[in-house]
């Protein structure tokens, strides 16, 4: 399987990465090599193996439903210059947002 330059451009767009046009063929080649390696791993018969979601053989520890974090807005907002009325300000989003 190969990742064509146009696929690289699409993935970069989804990840909001600004790639230099001239670098795209190189990324395409590198990523295709990685996919080749994965294809090589795919040759191993894993039909009897349960897929795992995490490399550790452990499961989620849970937390009681208690409020432990209190308002630190002022502290957090020292990290940005762009606030107003307690809100973080960001460049206007043109596309209409979809509630997920």
């Amino acid at each position: 399987m190969s990742l064509l330059p146009k696929d690289v451009a699409k993935v970069a767009h989804l990840a909001r990465l600004a790639l230099n046009e001239a670098d795209i063929p190189k990324y395409s080649e590198n990523l295709t090599n990685i996919l080749g390696f994965i294809e090589q791993m795919n040759e191993v018969d894993t039909s009897h193996i349960e897929p795992m979601a995490h490399p550790l053989d452990a499961h989620q520890r849970l937390r009681p439903d208690v409020v432990t974090e209190h308002n630190q807005r002022e502290l957090f907002q020292t990290l940005t210059l762009h606030t107003e009325a307690g809100l973080y300000l960001v460049p206007q989003v043109i596309e209409t947002k979809i509630e997920e």
Partner: peptide
């Protein structure tokens, strides 16, 4: 939540 009004060209974010 994003608020698109009243911030002169910016959007306000309430997390």
């Amino acid at each position: 939540k994003s608020l698109h009004e009243d911030f002169s060209g910016m959007s306000g974010i309430d997390l």
